[in-house]
């Protein structure tokens, strides 16, 4: 127990003396996860809308597939993406392996099912007469869909929060496709894993605390935004 307390004390010292390397790691984490969440949200919300209102074959199967993918293990996504992006793989010509872009792609794959499935649930909950009323009042198809999405926004924002939580906490996929290269693809979670390996528990704990604080801040911001739009 004493050791844990010492770790926390050192962790706070490290946070207060936030150095450039640590700051770079934090910034890269935010950039990668931020980009992944924005793209996954746009794709996921559009997809969930199509799933809710368009008729097409295998819809039930697709919905099932989507719900199942919410539990995709990050290491499996990482390995799959590694084989795709490897120089020997089908997308190897793009030279994306071990770059921040590869990490963004991995996180999009992880966040997309969560955002799409939860948004889908939120959109389905919206009473169908909103869409019909909008269409009846002469709205175009796109305007009607905006009306529905507006009505489902509370649930949709929740889905984005859940997606963000998933990608910020994830380590398996970014470790494989990013390679944890110092100053280039090293993010908070992979640094924590590395520092644990090296036996630097204090630094690992410090990073863990920073990660939690950032998650807390982001979630608080989204929560305020959610409350604002709900009124």
């Amino acid at each position: 127990m004493y050791g844990i307390l010492i770790s926390f004390e050192k962790a706070f010292e490290l946070i207060l003396s936030l150095n450039r390397e640590l700051a770079g790691i934090v910034v890269l984490s935010l950039l990668v996860s931020g980009a992944a969440i924005v793209i996954a949200s746009l794709l996921g919300i559009v997809f969930s809308y199509v799933l809710a209102f368009r008729r097409f074959p295998f819809k039930g199967f697709l919905t099932n597939l989507l719900n199942t993918s919410m539990g995709l293990p990050p290491v499996v996504v990482g390995l799959f993406l590694y084989l795709l992006l490897s120089r020997n793989g089908p997308l190897g010509f793009m030279g994306l392996l071990y770059t921040p872009s590869a990490m963004v792609i991995a996180q999009i794959i992880l966040a997309f099912p969560i955002i799409a499935a939860m948004s889908h649930a939120a959109i389905v909950m919206v009473k169908p007469n909103i869409r019909l009323a909008a269409l009846g009042l002469g709205a175009t198809d796109i305007q009607a869909s905006v009306a529905v999405i507006r009505d489902a926004r509370y649930g949709i924002i929740s889905s984005v929060m859940a997606g963000l939580g998933r990608v910020m906490a994830e380590v398996g996929a970014v470790l494989i496709v990013g390679g944890n290269i110092a100053g280039y693809t090293r993010v908070m979670t992979t640094t924590i894993a590395l520092e644990y390996d090296k036996g630097n528990f204090e630094l690992a704990i410090a990073l863990g605390i920073i990660l939690l604080l950032i998650s807390l801040f982001l979630n608080a911001a989204l929560f305020l935004f959610q409350r604002k739009v709900y009124r």
Partner: peptide, 29 residues
């Protein structure tokens, strides 16, 4: 929200571009 997202995305893209600019003398071990 979307603008902030766009901003982040552009930042990331520029980060990638900057890193490829220096890629001339960068090797992977």
């Amino acid at each position: 929200m979307r603008f902030r997202g766009l901003f982040l995305f552009v930042m990331l893209l520029s980060l990638c571009t900057v890193s490829t600019l220096f890629a001339k003398t960068r090797i992977r071990c």
